[in-house]
Design a protein around this nucleic acid. Structure first.
Lengths: 205, 205
DNA sequence: TGTACATCAGTGAACGCGCGTTCACTGATGTAC
DNA sequence: TGTACATCAGTGAACGCGCGTTCACTGATGTAC
């Protein structure tokens, strides 16, 4: 008594079309100003059909949060693939960042925008996911630093790095393409400053 | 033939009421989702009277950008008042930051929110103002570091500091009050890492 | 000081429009036998 | 395989509501003389 195939397929296709349309439309005005009717029109369905897929725009927003963090986590997996090779990690991470930021522009923009200004439920979901990523990075850093740092110190450093990288991604997306090289070079220097600073500061403490 | 006094006074009072109401109301949903009628209702005037003061919600938004950066610049003046006393500058700056963030919550939130998700004109105005502040900080840093750094290096460091501080302010405003001490302590360590790192990295370069 | 006129912040009715949501429906897809 | 029935994604009319904007207006404040 499994769900029939063809009908389910069509439903899934419409669901995808709704998610894609919403991601495209929110890029202009943000999720808070997005209407169900705009989405329906963009997809090519009647407004009421929206309810066959989502209870509300907020519910749609939460689905987009999941999807966007899927893209971000894929990026982090790519970064980790190289292992903790200490001397090349900054260059490699920035390469992966630039590649993913371009391939998933809309998802990155969505996270930045809705984390600052989304409807409360969406905003909270974004901030929660970012906190989880902070903690994951702290675990990675524990490996790189050889397990001698305290949990709190690792989180502090992870937070500093995540904030800088998020700011860099936002700047790349907001800026003109010809500024990109400059922004990446700046990020590279910043990460080096941070890494050198963390190690020196640590040995003084 | 100067503008008459009493009438102008009343007009200014209404203008202020509109700005205050808008700042209060946007805290919930963001400027993009704010309606002229909501503002008028909150102020206690008829919707059409809004046009006596602003051409559109966007124009009102730009006035709020000016006002919010007025608050931010007042903070920076307070920080600078202590002069470039190298060893206490981090502690003093964080004290001033915490004080101003609480006194002008709504303005800081406005900057963070509309810089990420405001209507295009407002968003651009916010990002432009932040860039100006980056450059001002770079000038301050030139004094602190004794004039031996390149312009580009100073901007890189300023950008790193501004991003961290903005992230800290956002975290304080988004978090629960009992987390504040922890967040400030984390910011303190981050700024020390950055300063130590910048100096060491610099001397290696 | 008193009067006649000008200014203009705020009013209130009206407009067409897009909004979210309800409801009964259609007809292709799927299931039971 | 063929038939009768069930499911359910998408339809289309209708609703009351808040929206931005227009327009002619009112009446207190201000100015000229």
């Amino acid at each position: 008594v499994a769900e029939p195939v063809k009908r389910a397929e069509q439903k899934e296709r419409t669901r995808r079309a709704i998610l894609d349309a919403a991601l495209r439309l929110t890029a202009e005005t943000g999720l808070a100003a997005l209407s169900l009717r705009q989405v329906a029109k963009e997809v090519g369905i009647v407004p009421t059909a929206f309810y066959r897929h989502f209870d509300s725009i907020d519910a749609l927003g939460l689905a987009l949060v999941d999807e966007s963090f899927g893209a971000l986590r894929a990026m982090l997996r790519d970064v980790r693939r190289g292992g903790p090779a200490y001397d090349t990690i900054i260059d490699r991470s920035l390469e992966v960042l630039v590649e993913h930021v371009h391939a998933h522009q809309e998802h990155f923009r969505f996270i930045a925008r809705e984390g600052a200004a989304g409807p409360p439920a969406v905003r909270e979901a974004v901030l929660h996911q970012l906190e989880l990523i902070d903690r994951e990075l702290a675990t990675d850093l524990a490996v790189i630093t050889g397990g001698t740092w305290s949990h709190e110190d690792l989180l502090t450093l992870a937070d500093l790095i995540v904030n800088s990288v998020v700011a860099t991604a936002e700047a790349i997306l907001a800026g003109r393409p010809e500024q990109e090289k400059e922004l990446v070079e700046r990020a590279r220097r910043q990460l080096r400053m941070v890494l050198v600073g963390a190690l020196n500061w640590r040995s003084q403490a």
